[in-house]
């Protein structure tokens, strides 16, 4: 009696895991597609430079004026907040400028591309700003100098709907608040 039950349970479990494995296989294919898409991104992003349009927008949102044009934006991969190798160089240069400026306050603005959910992108934008902040703090900029704000997908730099535009829009912008 008990033996029979065990056998049945085993059979059922086997069937379930078979179904599960099929499911996993499908999922992997999707993930792969995504990766291929993402790898195209960096090339396009390197061309992205901060434009005056963005500075106007940040000035509107914060009572701040951006004075330093040589402080550059950094870009991110889709759905990622980790600092890319190309962004590390930019952050180092940005930190040097900030350290020279002394006690200037800066606002790091985190942005996402239009894909994804507005609410999740708000969190992702904040995370991007936080990651950039951590990097600058490690390079000697004081925590108290930096505040972060996320604009999620709400204020795209490039209004386009293709990977070029998206790559530019996934960014952290550094607004130096002049005195």
């Amino acid at each position: 009696m008990k033996k029979n039950m065990t056998l049945i349970v085993f059979l059922v479990l086997t069937a379930f895991s078979a179904a599960f494995i099929t499911g996993c296989a499908e999922k992997n294919t999707i993930v792969k597609d995504e990766t291929v898409q993402e790898q195209k991104a960096p090339a396009a992003e390197e061309q992205a430079a901060p434009t005056p349009v963005l500075q106007e927008q940040s000035a509107k949102a914060e009572p701040a004026t951006t004075t330093e044009v040589s402080i550059r934006d950094i870009n991110f991969d889709f759905d990622q907040s980790s600092i890319r190798p190309d962004a590390r160089e930019i952050l180092k240069a940005n930190a040097d400028i900030l350290l020279k400026k002394g006690a200037a306050k800066i606002t790091i603005e985190g942005y996402c591309d239009e894909r994804g959910t507005a609410e999740y992108n708000m969190a992702l934008g904040e995370r991007r700003a936080q990651e950039a902040k951590k990097y600058l703090v490690n390079l000697g900029v004081k925590t108290s100098q930096i505040i972060t704000i996320s604009y999620g997908e709400e204020r795209p730099l490039d209004p386009g709907h293709d990977e070029d535009a998206w790559a530019k829009n996934r960014r952290a912008h550094f607004a130096v608040n002049g005195k």
Binding site: G23, E26, K27, I30, V31, E34, D79, G116, T117, Y120
Partner: peptide
């Protein structure tokens, strides 16, 4: 577990 972007 289906798909790699599920929100809201």
């Amino acid at each position: 577990f289906e798909g790699n972007y599920n929100t809201s």
